[in-house]
Design a protein around this nucleic acid. Structure first.
Lengths: 243, 243
DNA sequence: CGACACTTTGAAGACGATCAACGCCGGTGG
DNA sequence: CCACCGGCGTTGATCGTCTTCAAAGTGTCG
């Protein structure tokens, strides 16, 4: 029974939350455990989409190569998040990104066809998928908005604060879980820019020294956190912070 | 019977395509026709999400206000596209954007609760929704990538070409269906930048004079169209163009 | 005709990318 | 144990791009 290795927090995982125990067991029964260590490639751009993949622990980077040979990080995923759900449900012919293991990961793989079948049979599961993908779509749109309208400084501040909230870190002091190079790539900027940005943020109450980060006063840096949130406050960062 | 006013192209609309006639009729029976003229607001940010809205004809702009009072266009939607599907299926408490009618529109409104019920009962419809939202999520991610890595010139070229393809326009000469101000806002740039960009594109085979656009040689401007596509050619523009 | 929204053009300034150099660290091999 | 190396991160200088402010031209609709 795979549920042995699953943490208690699975009740909050988007894919599973709200399901009855029967549905949950049925779903988990369809998955196969896989381990992958740092540097391992889960799949490459263009590969056929074989599985929906649930991250049980560790971290996975999704990225693409640009025509000039550089790579651009699309997402850095952690425990509880899923990979390929959009590729399975949407109309596409292969993986639209490369997946690389950043931190040694435990994964659960569900065959794509099996997922579709299960979604047809279990409407609660289908609604979970719909909800999960809908939220992702919305986040992606907010992201595009941010990329189009926020300065590098704002992007970094927003990222750090979101990081702190989503990972349940202590704002008064936590370590970056990824390299700065990876974060810069994730934010679509150069490492140099990221570095300079960090010193600017010191005046704003965000201190970064080496891997150590501390965020002094969340309210004070509000202007740097999701410019849209002050009016359109549907940013998960803000939502979480306000509670 | 509302199907009277629906065009033949509905078979290709993401929400309906592939459904059996029974499912389609059942779905359409749940909708209510609504007309709205240019300048009319369909809903505002924060309003409760009452309906899924299918655009039968016309055009609708989704936008948000930034803290400094400016507005940013998220999407410009046309016939066959739907509004609010993500807001209904995702976890959110109200509309996450404002909706404004750009061109006199005929809409079909489906009550949100009814849509959820129908998705539970008709798995084919649920899968359509999943597919539709998945594709949107993917497009949003590509958009974010573009915003982060393409120049204004590339963004405009990409937009114009996509516009041409998606609207089935004649590349050798078509009229912009929206004002340049709206397009600039949609691309997250200033009107001035858009205007200057347009003159640059003339050398690249894209001519814009007033509202009139012509795209000389689609292959030649490939470098300006979705920088990612040359490797990661999953851009709908390119897909459509290649056929 | 005149008001007004839309568009274009110019000049100045801010911002981020790029290139280059250097410091820091962990690992390898002599 | 030390020397060397490669990956990572910082800092400085320069350059191209986009925004901003200002002004003038174009169009439409009353």
């Amino acid at each position: 029974m795979p549920s042995r290795i699953l943490p208690d927090s699975i009740h909050r995982w988007p894919l599973l939350c709200g399901l009855t125990d029967e549905d949950k067991d049925c779903l988990l029964a369809g998955g196969r455990i896989r381990q992958a260590s740092r540097g391992e490639t889960l799949f490459r751009y263009g590969d056929p989409v074989a599985h929906l993949c649930l991250i049980v622990s560790g971290a996975v980077q999704l990225f693409r190569y640009t025509p000039d040979g550089n790579s651009r990080t699309i997402e850095i995923l952690k425990a509880g998040q899923t990979i390929c759900e959009e590729e399975i449900m949407g109309s596409c012919r292969g993986h639209r990104a490369n997946a690389l293991v950043v931190d040694h990961a435990i994964l659960m793989e569900f065959p794509a066809a099996w997922i579709k079948e299960t979604a047809k049979k279990h409407s609660a599961f289908a609604l979970n998928l719909l909800s999960l993908i809908s939220d992702q779509a919305h986040m992606a749109k907010v992201e595009a908005e941010h990329q189009a309208s926020m300065s590098a400084t704002q992007l970094v501040a927003c990222f750090l604060q979101r990081l702190c909230v989503l990972h349940d870190f202590d704002p008064t002091g936590f370590d970056l879980p990824y390299s700065k190079t990876l974060i810069a790539s994730r934010l679509g900027m150069e490492v140099e820019t990221f570095s300079r940005t960090v010193t600017k943020l010191r005046e704003q109450g965000i201190t970064v020294e080496g891997k150590r980060v501390s965020i002094r006063d969340l309210r004070r840096i509000e202007q740097y956190v999701c410019a849209f949130c002050s009016i359109a406050d549907d940013c998960p960062t803000h939502q979480a912070v306000k509670k």
